[in-house]
């Protein structure tokens, strides 16, 4: 058990370190410095700016300094917004992104799993067909298409929900729907095929042969086992909800981290790009760690295998 937790924790730290390093060197591989776009800068000012942001230090020193900063949870100053730190940019966008992201994750689990179960239990009958048709559409149509079509129909045409912003609670509907649509479909399909496979297992036959009631057989023996693969993809789901928010926040003009990220890309605000990437990665690593721990609870074989290593 502890071996498994330690192993996962180590993997998480190694990955995070790899991400910080990769991100730092990628951003410093950009031709020219961060201030090259402002061509009007005089050499003295350029030098002063370089000195101010320690850009004249050798690369390894900059890297070590940056690493020290990240470890003390300081992602440095923004290059474009004078006087604003990357931490502040993130703090500003975090509530919006967290709220929509958490709601989307909730929708994915609370809708995707039951839909998959309903489909599997009604295999080849109309509920199954209906769920599979919707899920196939959901997997094939890109989120930004869903978002813009929904925006046009529900906000511009019907006027049921505001076109942008989250001041009204109804403003959450479309962004959350667009963000989670793909993953609801994906999870529904996964839960369906996983449950169908579980239903074929010998131990399901044993459970029936023991005379257990249908509900017990299904929920205690079937569902729990079929949810294991669903839980394993929740990590990537979170990652994709985060990156999906770039486009969704753009379309619905939500002041979240994703929008700040896209803005800092267009502004070539390298420290912000770097900081937000690392922040995303850290959130994701923590989520993956949580999922791993959940996995441990659901599947006792994991603990056994890790300890045997």
């Amino acid at each position: 058990m502890t071996a498994y937790v330690v192993q996962r924790l180590l993997l998480m730290l190694v990955t995070l370190f790899a991400i910080i390093t990769l991100t730092f060197f990628l951003m410093h591989a950009v031709p020219g410095g961060p201030f090259t776009s402002e061509k009007m800068l005089q050499p003295e000012i350029q030098a002063a700016l370089n000195a101010k942001y320690h850009l004249d230090d050798p690369l390894w020193l900059q890297y070590l300094n940056y690493l020290r900063g990240v470890l003390s949870l300081d992602l440095g100053p923004s290059f474009k917004y004078a006087g604003m730190s990357v931490n502040e940019i993130i703090a500003e966008g975090l509530p919006v992104t967290m709220k929509t992201g958490a709601l989307a994750l909730l929708c994915v689990v609370a809708l995707g799993v039951p839909l998959g179960i309903v489909a599997a239990l009604n295999r080849n009958r109309w509920p199954d067909t209906l769920v599979m048709v919707i899920a196939t559409i959901g997997v094939a149509v890109p989120s930004y298409v869903i978002a813009t079509v929904a925006l046009y129909v529900f906000a511009l045409r019907l006027g049921w929900v505001p076109t942008f912003g989250l001041d009204d609670w109804r403003g959450y509907f479309l962004p959350v729907f667009a963000l989670s649509g793909f993953w609801i479909s994906f999870i529904a399909r996964l839960a369906r095929s996983s449950l169908l496979e579980t239903l074929q297992q010998d131990y399901m036959m044993t459970a029936k042969a023991k005379g257990l009631k249908r509900g017990t057989v299904l929920f205690k023996h079937g569902l729990r086992n079929s949810l294991i693969p669903v839980v394993t993809v929740l990590g990537p789901v979170v990652a994709n909800l985060l990156t999906g928010s770039f486009v969704i926040e753009q379309i619905f003009a939500l002041p979240g981290i994703g929008r700040h990220f896209v803005l800092s890309i267009t502004n070539r605000d390298y420290t912000a790009i770097m900081g937000i990437t690392i922040f995303y990665a850290a959130v994701l690593m923590v989520m993956i760690f949580i999922v791993d721990m959940l996995y441990l609870v659901l599947d006792p074989r994991i603990k056994y295998r890790a300890d045997a290593k």
Binding site: L11, L22, L26, M27, V30, A239, T243, I265, L284
Partner: peptide, 19 residues
């Protein structure tokens, strides 16, 4: 490979595009 597969790859496509 295990480390890479836990990295959110869309982010890296974006970073490479920036570079």
């Amino acid at each position: 490979v295990e480390v890479i597969s836990t990295i959110p790859l869309t982010l890296y496509v974006i970073l490479i595009m920036v570079v």
